[in-house]
């Protein structure tokens, strides 16, 4: 009897660890092993000797696209993210008002959450192709005589714009959902207090709503920035390698050129950048009032 109780309480004590262990082991294996393997691939040759040849290839070889890829990845992030944050803030404020059809509008705005980057790219291809919606519309309206070309090597800046449009269209929903959730959490009385004490719309936004939304905006920024370094499908669909990006180059080196070491190096670089960004984020944004806001 007493032996039984003891056994039971021991099981109880270790139960949470027993429940978590399978998931954790799985994750540690499927992330730890590839990362270790990745380091091996990146820094050894076929015979298993240490080498920097992949690093040299990546950085200096004329057939490597690393620097342009880094540049375009950053450029895309720098253009896309601010637009997304602004739009998401606008949508969030819009949906914090009460109006008929509000739920419907909310569902519509979050549809892109479930649409993949490949599909998002194709959907915008249907809008921008030379036989696409916009070209046919504007030509029929007589605004343009010739289709505006968005795709092809010679139209790289237009391809860039197409990617920006597709990504803003598809991935703003994620930023929106985070900021909207944050806005919902702000007690209405904080805003009403500002109103009573004389704040107009702009003062309310500037001094109450934006500061209190800061944690949500920061979270959204972090997640969007991390995703920006993984951008792949939409670029491949709309521009191929015309606009090189880090993940795209990794894919190319791996599956077309069979440069496994170089591809692994790309993977490590993307992982390293993400970890550094996450670390900086945690260090930098420890707002003093965070505790209360999240309450």
């Amino acid at each position: 009897m007493s032996n039984n109780t003891r056994k039971y309480s021991l099981v109880e004590k270790y139960l949470p660890y027993i429940l978590i262990a399978p998931a954790l082991s799985y994750l540690l294996f499927f992330i730890g092993y590839p990362l270790t393997q990745g380091v091996l691939l990146a820094f050894t040759d076929q015979n298993g000797h240490f080498t920097l040849q992949h690093v040299y290839y990546l950085l200096y070889s004329p057939s490597s696209n690393f620097w342009p890829a880094l540049e375009d990845t950053l450029a895309l992030a720098a253009v896309i993210i601010p637009i997304q944050v602004m739009l998401a803030l606008g949508f969030s404020l819009m949906l914090s008002a009460n109006f008929k059809g509000k739920d419907m509008a909310l569902y519509i705005l979050i549809i892109p959450l479930t649409i993949s980057d490949v599909a998002g790219g194709l959907i915008w291809y249907s809008m921008l192709a030379s036989n696409g919606f916009f070209n046919k519309l504007f030509m029929t309206l007589g605004i343009i005589n010739q289709p505006i070309q968005f795709f092809g090597w010679q139209f790289r800046p237009m391809e860039f714009i197409a990617i920006v449009l597709a990504e803003v269209w598809r991935a703003t929903a994620l930023v929106f959902v985070i900021i909207f959730a944050g806005l919902q959490m702000i007690s209405k009385e904080y805003i009403e207090a500002a109103e009573v004490f004389g704040a107009g719309t702009w003062t309310k936004l500037r001094h109450i709503i934006f500061p209190m939304l800061k944690p949500s905006v920061q979270t959204a920024l972090l997640i969007r920035t991390l995703f920006a370094f993984q951008v792949f499908g939409v670029v491949m669909v709309l521009a191929g390698r015309d606009i090189p990006v880090l993940a795209g180059e990794a894919y190319y080196e791996q599956t077309i050129l069979y440069h496994y070491g170089v591809a692994a190096l790309y993977a490590l670089i993307i992982a390293a950048i993400s970890i550094v960004i996450g670390y900086i984020y945690i260090k930098m944004f420890k707002a003093q009032y965070l505790r209360e806001v999240s309450m």
Partner: peptide, 27 residues
């Protein structure tokens, strides 16, 4: 260790999982 474990899971949620694909091929 609950908090640290949970933080680890949140961290892994943010981790760019696509990078594991390339080394996984060898395995």
């Amino acid at each position: 260790g609950k908090d640290s474990l949970k933080l680890l899971i949140i961290g892994l949620r943010m981790f760019p999982m696509l990078v594991i694909a390339i080394p996984l091929v060898t395995l």
